[in-house]
Every structure is written in structure tokens, then in C-alpha cells.
Design a protein around this nucleic acid. Sequence first.
DNA 1: CTGAAAGCGCTTACAG
DNA 2: CTGAAAGCGCTTACAG
Lengths: 377, 377
Amino acid sequence: MTSSRPEQPRGTGRGKRVTIADIARRAGVTSAAVSLAVNGRPGVSDATRERILEIARELRWEPSHAARALAGAPVKTVGMVLARPAEVLGAEAFFGAFVAGLQEVLSAADYSLQMKIVESTEAEIDTYRRWFGQRRVDGVVLVDLRLQDPRIGALEELGQPALVVGGPGHHGSLPSVYVDDAEATRLIVEHLAELGHTRIARVAGTAEFLHTMQRNTTFRRLGEELGLECVQQDAGFGAAGAARATAEVLRLPAPPTAIVFDSDEMALAGAAVLRSCEVPIPEGVAVVSYEDSPLTRGHTPPITAIRRSAVEYGRAAATRMLEVIDAAAGRRTAATGDPGTSAEARVIEPQLAVRASTDPSLGGTTGADLAAGLDAS
Amino acid sequence: MTSSRPEQPRGTGRGKRVTIADIARRAGVTSAAVSLAVNGRPGVSDATRERILEIARELRWEPSHAARALAGAPVKTVGMVLARPAEVLGAEAFFGAFVAGLQEVLSAADYSLQMKIVESTEAEIDTYRRWFGQRRVDGVVLVDLRLQDPRIGALEELGQPALVVGGPGHHGSLPSVYVDDAEATRLIVEHLAELGHTRIARVAGTAEFLHTMQRNTTFRRLGEELGLECVQQDAGFGAAGAARATAEVLRLPAPPTAIVFDSDEMALAGAAVLRSCEVPIPEGVAVVSYEDSPLTRGHTPPITAIRRSAVEYGRAAATRMLEVIDAAAGRRTAATGDPGTSAEARVIEPQLAVRASTDPSLGGTTGADLAAGLDAS
DNA sequence: CTGAAAGCGCTTACAG
DNA sequence: CTGAAAGCGCTTACAG
């Protein structure tokens, strides 16, 4: 072996990376042919395509993500910005489950999820701008939809493919997926009415979120329709507000016989207040939560809750997001119509899990029941 | 205005992107000078640097991530592969909180987290290989450490900067952060011993995880040291096994007066069994969980638990991961020692949150207490 | 169907 | 301190 120093092309020195050039050399073709072959595009004969793929496999070639992106290919990444403190996110069962569902579908399609935690809505919009400028994501998932949400306009202006989680309405020209909160409210109120309740209170979360508004409206309307006494008590965010609001409605001249809470966390805080006031659940006051979780299932008694499986919600969002991205990509190449990017909203139908906190006949739980409930989550 | 068609350099057509070439033209310098200026590197005078930065700002230039990566710069991304089903991840309070903590620190450093859910350990290792080949991540965070973990060797061989979450030991030459489970076990057992318990059972989770082993060993050792009757019951994964195991220890000739569970989910299932057997907590049997969460805090009675704040754990892991990445980058450029990548392990000290499930004097909780507890999570 | 080339936007030696 | 050039690894028209 002669030391062929001057002949040897010197790379950066690490020299391990296999590139399409290596494959091309071995196959006796040009790197363009390799590109066509590995991307399943026409332009090479089946025989050479086979040979090229074989060599690529042999050499354990991996496409350079950066190079592909630089050449204009999709970056296979979905972005999600969260404008909430880590502690708040961490305390929410919803977040982890939603992310897990997103991840599952995105991972299977070889997409990755890029998340970022920011301090404010301005910082969130700024992140969208930068991501767009850097071409860092193919699409973004927008969560925590509000009324008059400034993020919608910003994304529209940018022309960034995006999916809104929330609705209906208020998502501008962007597509959306959302849980039908009107239907959820109907399920709850009708369930309570069937059990004979006529005075129902709703302890409501932050009014700035769209779904809260939705619930407020439907709750009021259904009360009128069914001839029930429906009162609403605003509690703002979190457990402390819910505890206060619960105490408040208990002091009403004619206290409710059922209370509906906007989240599992709130329902638990409310239930604790009932316990401390020695009001039995459900005999004294029935309790319902808009959010199901291990918290509601594990409570004593287990709490009747809207089941919308956050994991499933995440899967639905990811699936729709990928459609939107595909449609946007298709529109760029083929100049066809764009069915996927339209402002179509997709609805997820909620269900009501009836438990002992409203139905006395479902009395005692055994450990086995509980275990089964948790496993089935 | 004359239509200068032939003069106009035709790009891909979208033509919106601002590049360093645009800045260079405006500043009357070469693009190399712009690169040096925006990266704060020597090679340009302060005056021209200022001018360049000014123009970059004016033009709202954003560096192309792909181009930087292709040219060898860090991709500013940390990867994490999860070999568990989405449903399982979603049901765990730990996951969401840990991710939120990771995100917070990574986001602040302008890093992003890339996650992927896979089916098996082999698929996980394969993902590491591909990410490494694609140069898609600067480092990876390895979770769910096992004994004889094949992932450790794979990452070492790859030379991929990585951080192991778990320990002590069994992380090969890779750095690690972990919660001191021996200390946690000591806290629990001593707390119970002080309350006068002499027969303590431990309902243990999956034995393949390292931390389970760690707890097993320490539990046994402490029992001997303190002269306690310590029995261990293996329950495998999840709530169903824990319920079975709890029933099992209750049938012992001399049943324990305290049971320690490996997770919040397991503790809840165990508590439900106790309830169904009409064993009061803590008077009949005291209950402790190795994992704190809204589940343990919200239980009736609230459950004494090891507090290790999953959010904080995530933050610690992210901080260490960034150190490791910096050290690896430094080692490549400056040929100094590499203090950051060493197999150093960093310990997180656990605390015990004592609640009514062990201490009868902490009896009734009010809604306000609960609210405060949840907020402080 | 195949080859040679330009281009994506940056970084990094290497001369002046 | 500055300029001109090569290179990162791929994709995409555009000729043959």
C-alpha cells in the first residue's frame, strides 16, 4: 500500500459520513441518479435503481437532513409553542397525554415534534416568525385558542401551514380540530336532568379560552330549554379559584344539587370543599368534570366526567396536521386545488363516563375496578 | 423603471428569503465578513461589524438552520426516544412534567427537543443510529435505564453525546443524572419506623428498571439495620398488579402495618383495595408512594410521598445535557480536556412529603389546603 | 433514460 | 483586517 496522501481528497477529517457521492461512485452513476433512485422518482431504469438501493443499504447511507432541507425538501418537523409556565404544564394531565398522542402519529410518519415554551403571546408569534424565516418547521399546531386570537392573523399573514386545536370558529382561514363542547355540555346537563336535578351550578374556568365561552352559552341555553335553574360561577384558573367558587354556590339561598366543573383539577378542589362542609357526594351534591383523568377516576367516589381521551385528541390533531402539510406541499408543486388546507374544522365527539359522583347506584369501587379503570385509560 | 428581466437573477421563484448575501451586498462586504460579524467572531472591524448587524436587523434576517447545519454548526436539537406506548405515557403524570421541565431549559437556550415514540429497544437504538447518521441531534437524553442496558453500549460506540437519566452506575462512560433512590428509601423507612411501624411491606414495580433494584436492596438493608420486618411483594407494571400485590400482603399471617408503593398509580390502586377491605388509612395500614403527583395529593386521605418534582428533574437533565453538548463541541474545536462529557453522575436529593396517609395527626384536609397543595406542585 | 451543472445559505481555512 | 473560494450533501431543471 502506497501512502497516496496528495491524491486523497481531504474532507473535514472525520470522514465517516456516507453520501450519495459514495454511492454514485460505487454504482458508476452520477449522484443525481442516486438522488432520483432513493427518492423513488422516475428518471432511472429499474435495474440501476435496484443496484443503487442495494449499495445504499450496504453502505448504511442516511440522507443528510440538513442538505435535504437546504435543497428545499420538507424538514419533516411540526412545531408547537406553549405560552404557559413549565410548572403549570407539568401539573396538567392533559398536556402529557396530548403530546404523547401527537408524537405517536408524527413519529410513525417520520415527522418530529419541536416544542418551545415561551413567556407571552408576543413571544409565541415571534417564534412562529423565526421558525418560518428559518424554514425550521413544515407546519405548526396552535393550542389554547382564544377569542380575538392575534396568533391566527399572524400565521395567516406568514402563510405558514398551521392547524388550530380549538373551535368551532375563531380560527380564521386555518383548519382546526376541536372537541364539541356544546355536545359535551348537552351530555352533562341531560344526564343530570334525567337523575332529577333541577338546580345545577357550573364552576367555570378562565373566560378567555374559547371553549369556556362555548360551554357558558350552551349551559345557559339548555337550562332554559329544559326548565332548569342553571347558575354559573366564574372561578378563573386553577384549584384555589374552584374551591372559592364552590363555597360560594353552597351559600346561595337555594344551593344547587349538582355542580359541574371545567377541569379535573377544579372538580377535585370542589369535592374537597364539599367534604369539608360534610356534604356527601352524590347524595348532597352531585359532581361532574369536563375533563377525565386518573384524578377523576381515582377519586372517592369516582367522578363522572367528559371523556375525550387527550391521547386520542393528540392523534387526531397530528393526523390533520400531516394532511395540511401534504396539501400545502402539493399546492406548491402541482397547481391543483387545495382541499387539505381549507378552513375545514374537524369535530371530535365527546362521551360521558358516568360514575358514582352522580349516580348513587354505582356506589362502592373495589380495587379491581379501579385497576381496570386505570388500565383502560 | 425598465423591466430588467434578463439581468434579474432567477431564484426558485419564492424569492422572499433574506440571506447573508443580501446583507453583504448592502454593506459592500463579502458574505464571509457577514458570517463573522453575526457570529461574533474576530475578523472584522468593530465599525463594519456594527454596520452589518444594523443591516441584518433592518432586513430581518434569520439564519438558515439547514445551511448552518450543513456547514457543520450544531443543530441545536436534543433528541429523546421513548419505547413505551402513547397511552402509557399519557397516563403518567411524570412524563408531561419531565418534558415540561426539559423544554423550559432547552427553549431558553434556543435548543429544541425532538421526541420519537418507538415500539422496542431495537427500534430505539436504530433511531439513535439514524439520528447520528443524519446529524439530526447534538445530543440525546436516555430514559428508563435498565440493568445491562444495550442502549448504553450503542451510544458509546456511536460517539453520540448523551445523557443518561438514571443511576447510579450502569450508565457506562456516559454522564448521568438521577434521583437518589437509596436516600428516598431511607427517608420512607425511617419515617415509618419513627411512627412505630415494625412490619412494613414494599409493593415493587417492574424489576427490570434500575431504580427498582436500588430500592429493593436498600429496603432490605434498612430493615435489617433497624430491626424491622420488611417484606417485598413484586407487582410488575401498573395498577392491576399493585392491587393484587396489596391483597396478597394483607393475607399474610402477620400483615404489615404500612405499605410502600413504587408509584402514585400503584399507591392509588393499593389504597382502593384497602378501602374495599375496610382497612382504614393510616390507622389500619399506612400508605406511602415513591412518586408524588396530583393523584397522591388529591387522594383521601392525601398520601405521603417522595417529592422529586418531575419538572425539576427535567430541568436538571436539560441543564446537564447542554453541558455535555458544549463539552463535546469544545473538545472538537479546542483540543482541551473534556470535563463535561465524563461519566460523572449528578444526584438529585429527594424529599419526603408527609401527609395524612401515614401521620394521623394531619387528619382532615380542607378545600383550601388542597388548593394550596395543588398550586404549589 | 442518463450526465454535467447550478444552486440551496451558510462556515471555514487560506491568501492577500 | 478583508476577499475570493471551496465545501457541506442534497435536489432540480436542463441538455444530451
